[in-house]
Amino acid sequence: MRKLAFFAPFAATIAFAGIAAAEPATVNVTIGHELQRDAENLGAREVQEQVDRLTWVLQSRLADSAELEGARIDLVLTDLKPNRPTMEQLVKRPGLDPLRSRSIGGAAVEGTVVLADGSTRPVRYDWFSPSLADVQGSTTWTDADRAYERLARNLANGRYTVR
Rank of each mutant, 00 (worst) to 15 (best):
Ala44Ile: 15
Thr140Gly: 03
Ala5Cys: 08
Val109Tyr: 09
Ile14Asn: 03
Arg150Asn: 14
Leu54Gln: 11
Glu88His: 07
Gly111Trp: 08
Ile14Glu: 06
Ala11Lys: 09
Arg72Lys: 04
Ala71Ile: 00
Arg45Glu: 12
Gln59Pro: 09
Ala66His: 09
Ile104Val: 02
Leu155Cys: 04
Lys3Thr: 08
Ile73Thr: 02
Asn83Ser: 03
Ser103Thr: 03
Val91Trp: 00
Ser103Arg: 05
Asn28Pro: 00
Glu46Pro: 01
Leu151Tyr: 11
Gly18Leu: 14
Trp141Gly: 00
Gly105Val: 05
Asp134Pro: 01
Ala17His: 08
Ala25Tyr: 09
Phe7Trp: 09
Arg150His: 13
Pro85Phe: 00
Trp127Glu: 14
Leu99Ile: 08
Phe7Ile: 14
Ala107Val: 07
Asn41Lys: 04
Thr13Leu: 08
Met1Ser: 06
Ile19Trp: 09
Val51Gly: 08
Val29Thr: 10
Val51Leu: 14
Gly111Gln: 06
Gly111Pro: 01
Arg2Val: 12
Arg121Pro: 00
Asp38Cys: 04
Glu149Ser: 10
Ser65Gln: 03
Arg146Cys: 10
Ala66Glu: 13
Glu67Tyr: 01
Gly118Cys: 04
Asp134Arg: 02
Ala17Pro: 01
Ala144Ile: 11
Thr142Glu: 11
Trp56Leu: 12
Arg146His: 13
Glu40Cys: 05
Ala133Gln: 04
Lys81Cys: 04
Gln36Tyr: 12
Tyr148Thr: 00
Val57Pro: 10
Thr13Cys: 11
Glu23Asp: 12
Gly18Ser: 04
Phe16Pro: 00
Val113Leu: 02
Ala152Val: 00
Arg153Asn: 09
Leu68Ile: 02
Asp126Gln: 14
Leu155Asp: 10
Met1Arg: 08
His33Tyr: 13
Gly118Gln: 06
Asp134Lys: 05
Asp145Val: 14
Leu77His: 02
Pro94His: 13
Val135Phe: 03
Gly111Lys: 06
Tyr148Gly: 00
Ala133Arg: 08
Gly32Pro: 14
Arg163Thr: 07
Arg150Lys: 15
Asp74Thr: 06
Leu132Lys: 07
Asp74Ser: 03
Thr86Asn: 03
Gly95Lys: 15
Lys92Val: 02
Ala71Arg: 02
Arg93Ala: 02
Ile31Asp: 11
Val29Arg: 11
Ala17Gly: 05
Gln136Gly: 13
Gly18Glu: 11
Arg61Ala: 08
Ala17Tyr: 15
Arg163Ile: 05
Val76Met: 09
Ala107Trp: 02
Val76Glu: 14
Thr140His: 03
Leu80Glu: 05
Ala152Lys: 07
Glu67Trp: 02
Gln136Leu: 15
Thr140Lys: 06
Tyr148Ser: 06
Asp126Trp: 14
Gly43Leu: 01
Leu151Ala: 11
Asn83Ile: 03
Pro94Ile: 08
Val162Asn: 09
Val47Glu: 04
Ser101Arg: 01
Gln89Ser: 04
Pro24Asp: 10
Glu40Asp: 14
Ile104Gly: 07
Ala147Met: 12
Asp52His: 06
Lys92Leu: 09
Ala25Met: 06
Ala152Ile: 00
Trp141Thr: 04
Arg72Gly: 04
Arg53Pro: 07
Met87Phe: 09
Leu132Ser: 02
Gly137Trp: 12
Arg61Asn: 15
Pro9Ala: 07
Val114His: 00
Ala22Leu: 02
